[in-house]
Amino acid sequence: EFILQPIHNLLMGDTKEQRILNHVLQHAEPGNAQSVLEAIDTYCEQKEWAMNVGDKKGKIVDAVIQEHQPSVLLELGAYCGYSAVRMARLLSPGARLITIEINPDCAAITQRMVDFAGV
Rank of each mutant, 00 (worst) to 15 (best):
P6T: 12
I109S: 06
F116Y: 12
S35T: 14
Q34R: 15
R112Q: 13
I98M: 15
I7N: 02
Q111P: 04
D115Y: 14
E29Q: 12
I100M: 10
K16N: 02
R112W: 10
Q34P: 15
L25Q: 01
Q34K: 04
N22Y: 00
L11V: 13
N9T: 01
P104R: 09
A28P: 14
G118V: 12
I20F: 03
T15N: 10
Q34L: 14
M12T: 03
A107D: 12
D115H: 09
Q26E: 11
I109M: 11
S35G: 12
N9I: 04
N32Y: 11
E17K: 01
P30L: 03
D105G: 10
N9S: 04
N22S: 00
I102L: 10
L10Q: 01
D105A: 05
P104S: 14
Q111L: 03
N32T: 00
I98L: 07
G13R: 12
Q5P: 00
L4M: 07
S35C: 10
P30A: 07
E1Q: 05
M113V: 05
I102N: 09
I7L: 05
I100N: 10
A117S: 08
P6R: 03
F2C: 03
I102F: 15
T15P: 01
Q26L: 05
A107T: 03
S35R: 15
T110A: 04
A107V: 13
V119G: 15
A108V: 10
E101Q: 05
T99A: 07
N103K: 14
A117P: 07
E101A: 13
G13C: 07
M12K: 11
G118R: 12
Q5E: 06
G31W: 08
I3T: 02
H23N: 03
T99N: 15
A28G: 12
Q18H: 01
T15A: 03
I20T: 00
G31E: 04
C106W: 02
A33G: 06
R112P: 03
I7M: 06
E17A: 03
V114G: 14
H27N: 06
K16E: 00
H23P: 02
V119L: 11
N32I: 13
N32D: 12
P30R: 06
D105N: 14
F116V: 04
H23L: 01
L10R: 00
I100V: 05
I100T: 09
P6S: 10
G13S: 13
I3S: 07
I7V: 00
F116S: 15
I20L: 04
Q18P: 10
E17G: 05
N103S: 10
N9Y: 02
E29G: 03
E29K: 15
L21V: 08
I109T: 11
L25R: 00
G31R: 14
Q111E: 11
L97M: 14
D105H: 13
L21M: 10
H8D: 14
I100S: 10
A108T: 09
E101K: 12
L25V: 01
V114E: 13
G118S: 12
H8Q: 13
A28T: 02
L97V: 15
H23R: 02
D105E: 10
R19S: 13
H27Y: 14
D14H: 09
L11R: 04
R19L: 11
Q111R: 05
T110P: 04
Q111H: 05
L10M: 08
M12V: 05
D115E: 07
I20M: 01
N103D: 03
A28E: 15
H27R: 11
L4Q: 00
P6L: 11
K16R: 05
H8N: 07
L97Q: 07
V114L: 14
M113T: 01
T99P: 10
Q18K: 02
D115A: 08
H27P: 15
E1K: 14
L11I: 12
T99S: 09
P104L: 13
D115G: 11
S35N: 02
A33P: 15
V24L: 05
L4P: 02
H27Q: 12
N22K: 06
D115V: 06
A33V: 11
Q34E: 04
L97P: 08
F116L: 15
M12L: 08
G13D: 13
I100F: 07
L10P: 00
F2I: 03
I20N: 05
I7F: 01
N32H: 15
I102V: 04
N9K: 08
E1A: 00
D14Y: 09
G118A: 12
L25P: 00
Q26R: 00
D105Y: 12
A33T: 03
P104H: 14
D14G: 07
A108G: 10
G31V: 14
G118D: 11
P104A: 03
Q111K: 11
D14V: 15
F116I: 07
T110I: 06
I3M: 01
E29A: 01
A117G: 13
N103Y: 03
D14A: 06
T99I: 14
V24E: 02
L25M: 01
L21P: 00
N103H: 03
K16M: 03
K16T: 06
Q5K: 11
Q18R: 01
N32K: 09
I100L: 02
Q5L: 04
I7S: 07
L11H: 04
C106G: 13
F2Y: 04
N103T: 12
L4V: 05
F2S: 03
I7T: 05
Q26H: 06
V119M: 11
N22T: 01
Q5R: 00
E29V: 14
M113L: 08
F116C: 09
T110S: 09
R19G: 11
F2L: 04
D105V: 13
A108D: 12
L10V: 09
L97R: 06
E1G: 05
I98N: 05
T110N: 09
H8R: 04
A28V: 09
A108S: 11
E29D: 13
S35I: 12
D14N: 03
N22D: 04
L21R: 00
P30T: 15
M113I: 08
G118C: 10
Q34H: 09
E101V: 15
C106Y: 01
P30S: 08
I109F: 13
V114A: 06
C106F: 09
H27L: 15
A117T: 10
C106R: 10
V119A: 10
G13A: 06
G13V: 08
I20S: 01
E17D: 02
I102S: 06
I3N: 04
D115N: 14
R19C: 08
H23Y: 06
V24G: 02
M113R: 08
P6H: 07
E1V: 07
P6A: 15
N9H: 00
L4R: 02
N32S: 00
G31A: 03
C106S: 09
A33E: 00
T15I: 02
I3F: 02
R19P: 15
N9D: 01
Q26K: 11
V119E: 12
N103I: 06
E17Q: 09
Q18E: 08
M12R: 09
H8Y: 04
V24M: 02
I98T: 07
I109N: 07
H8P: 02
R112L: 07
Q26P: 07
I109L: 11
P30H: 13
H27D: 14
A117V: 15
V24A: 00
I3L: 08
E101G: 14
P104T: 13
A117D: 08
I98F: 12
L21Q: 08
I102T: 08
A33S: 07
H8L: 13
I98V: 10
Q5H: 02
M113K: 05
R19H: 12
H23D: 00
I3V: 09
A28S: 13
D14E: 07
A107P: 14
V114M: 11
H23Q: 05
M12I: 06
Q18L: 04
T15S: 08
A108P: 08
A107S: 10
L11F: 01
E17V: 06
E1D: 06
A107G: 09
F2V: 04
I109V: 11
N22I: 02
R112G: 05
E101D: 06
L11P: 08
I102M: 01
